[in-house]
Structure formats: structure tokens, C-alpha cells
Amino acid sequence: MTNYFHLDVELKLRDEDKAVVTPAYFLGSIEESLQSFFGEIGGQTDLQLIKFDKNQKRAILRVHEEFVTRTRSAITLIGHFQDIPCHFIIRNTSKEQLDF
């Protein structure tokens, strides 16, 4: 039994064409949100991007059990992606491996 949680996260943008969505930018926006809401100490979370689909703007993230609540709240609170209004949807969470 692993102590990791898998999150299926989807990005919904107001203006679909303007943003450049890459795995690094996707993960960066979540890490930036963690830093902003939980600070330098609180925001230190080991976040891994397992799978990424550019067309669906969807990713599978892996995070340690103790940081799930923090990561979920940080993801939910994101309001902008490259200055474009957006929101993230957490479609599924599981202790097992997830797929699209």
C-alpha cells in the first residue's frame, strides 16, 4: 500500500486559444498557488505530474497523503492561468493509479 494520492485535474480556461498549456506551466501554476496560500514553509509540497494530455488540458498528479487537503485547496483557489481567468476541476481522486 502506497501513501500517495492521485488527482485527476482538468483546466478550464475562459479563452481556450490564448494560453500556452504545457506540463511545466500546468504544474507551475499549482505550485505557485501553493506558495501563495501556504507560504514558504507551508507550501513545500512534493508534487509529481504523472500524465498530461495537452488537448484536454488534463493531468494526473501524484501527491503524498498528508498534503492532499492542502493541494486540493490550492488547486481550487486558482483563478488565473497566464492572466486568463480560469478554474481547475478535480475530476477524481484515488489511492490507486488513475487514467484518463
Binding site: Q35, S36, F37, F38, G39, E40, I41, G42, G43
Partner: peptide
């Protein structure tokens, strides 16, 4: 400093 180290939540 609390804001710096623990963010908005802290």
C-alpha cells in the same frame, strides 16, 4: 513574516 512563511492561510 507570517505571511511570507505560512502564506495567506497562515
Amino acid at each position: 513574516n507570517v505571511k511570507k512563511y505560512y502564506g495567506d492561510y497562515g
